[in-house]
C-alpha cells in the first residue's frame, strides 16, 4: 500500500465536488492510501501571504507540523495547485533558513523540521508503480478519440527553485498519464501560463483575459477537453467561458493596439470547451459513470465529446 498524508484543501469540500469524488474513486482503485491530516486548516492561499509573510508561512506550517507529528514517515500530498504552492514554499523556506523555522515554530508553539516532501497529485500519479496500478485499474479507454490539452497551471511548476520542476515551459507528466487512459494529449502553448484564478476579484482587468487566451490556444491546437491538476484552475477556466465567448462575439478581443503587428487574438469562439481534472479523466476510464462523479456539477457541460470517445461495455457505468 502506498500511503501519503493528505491535505485536501478547502476547494475539495466546496467547488471541486466532482473532482473530490473522482479523487476518492481513483486513489481507491490504484492502491494509494491518502490519510487526511487531522484538523487541517486553510493554507491561506491567495490572501494570507499578501497580508503578512509570517501568516502566509504559519498557516501551511500548522497543517504540515501536524502531519509531521502524526506520520513522520509520510510525505504530504495535495490536489490543489494553490495549496501545493503554499505548502511547498513553506517547507522549502523552513528547510533553507533557520530564522524562518524559528519564527514558524514560535508562532505554532510546536516543532516543525520540514523533514518530508510536499507533493502534488501529478507527482504521485507519475510514480512508476502507480502508473502500473493505473493501467491495471483501467476498464475502458478513450481509444485515441479524445484530444486533451493538459493544463498544469503556473503554481504546480513555478517557482522552479522551490518546486524543482525540470521543464517549466513544456512539462509532460500529465500528458503521459492522460495517454495511459487512451486520450491524445495535444502539443499546445499554454501549459504553464497563469489562468488568473487568484486575482479575479482584486485585479479583474488584468486577470480576466488570461483564461481566455488559454482556452483559445487549447481550441486552436485542436483540444476537445482541457485537463487540469487544480480545482482552482478548473473552476476559473469553466466560469470564465461564458464571458469569454460573449466578448468574442461582441468584438474581437484581441485586436491589439499596434496594427502593424501581424497578430493576434482570437477569432470568435463559438463553443465551450469542457474542463476536467486529470483524476476525473482517470475515474471515467476506470469505469465511473457521470452520475457517480456528479458531472452535472460542472459549470461547462461536459457534453457528448467524452461519451462519444468511450466505448461502454457491461462492466462499466454508463457515462452519459
Amino acid at each position: 500500500m502506498i500511503r501519503y498524508a493528505y491535505f485536501p484543501g478547502c476547494a475539495s469540500e466546496s467547488t471541486a465536488l466532482s473532482t473530490t469524488l473522482a479523487n476518492e474513486f481513483v486513489f481507491g482503485r490504484i492502491g494509494v492510501d491518502l490519510i487526511e491530516i487531522k484538523d487541517w486548516n486553510c493554507c491561506g492561499a491567495t490572501s494570507a501571504h499578501v497580508l503578512s509573510e509570517a501568516l502566509g508561512l504559519a498557516l501551511p506550517a500548522r497543517a504540515l507540523a501536524r502531519a509531521e507529528a502524526d506520520w513522520p514517515e509520510l510525505d504530504v500530498v495535495t490536489g490543489c495547485a494553490s495549496c501545493y504552492a503554499r505548502l511547498k514554499l513553506t517547507n522549502h523556506r523552513v528547510r533553507q533558513d533557520g530564522g524562518t523555522r524559528y519564527m514558524v515554530e514560535k508562532i505554532l508553539g510546536r516543532p516543525y523540521a520540514a523533514k518530508r516532501e510536499v507533493l502534488n497529485f501529478l507527482d504521485v500519479l507519475s510514480r512508476d508503480d502507480v502508473k502500473a496500478n493505473i493501467e491495471e485499474a483501467l476498464m475502458r479507454t478513450f481509444r485515441g478519440k479524445l484530444r486533451v490539452a493538459c493544463y498544469y497551471g503556473c503554481l504546480n511548476i513555478r517557482p522552479c527553485e522551490v518546486t524543482g520542476a525540470k521543464d517549466r515551459e513544456n512539462p509532460v507528466a500529465m500528458d503521459e498519464i492522460a495517454r495511459l487512459a487512451g486520450a491524445v494529449p495535444v502539443d499546445w502553448g499554454y501549459k504553464t501560463e497563469c489562468c488568473g484564478a487568484a486575482h479575479q476579484n482584486d485585479a479583474a482587468l488584468e486577470a480576466r483575459p488570461l483564461a481566455g487566451r488559454i482556452l483559445h490556444n487549447a481550441k486552436e491546437c485542436g483540444a476537445d477537453v482541457l485537463l487540469t491538476a487544480c480545482p482552482m484552475c478548473q473552476m476559473n477556466l469553466e466560469m470564465r467561458q461564458a464571458e469569454y465567448i460573449r466578448k468574442n462575439r461582441d468584438k474581437a478581443v484581441g485586436r491589439q493596439t499596434f496594427p502593424l503587428l501581424d497578430v493576434v487574438l482570437p477569432p470568435p469562439a463559438g463553443k465551450t470547451i469542457p474542463v476536467l481534472s486529470i483524476t476525473e479523466l482517470l475515474a471515467i476510464a476506470m469505469g465511473a459513470g457521470g452520475e457517480r462523479l456528479r458531472m452535472d456539477a460542472h459549470h461547462v457541460p461536459v457534453g457528448r465529446v467524452i461519451a462519444d470517445a468511450l466505448r461502454d461495455d457491461a462492466e462499466t457505468e454508463v457515462f452519459l
Binding site: 491589439q256 503587428l261 497578430v263
Partner: peptide, 17 residues
C-alpha cells in the same frame, strides 16, 4: 506566436510568424 513586450509602447505584443 512570438510574445514579447514592446518596451517603447509598454505593451505586450504577439506576432504570428
Amino acid at each position: 506566436i512570438c510574445q514579447g513586450e514592446d518596451s517603447l509602447l509598454g505593451k505586450q505584443v504577439r506576432v504570428a510568424a
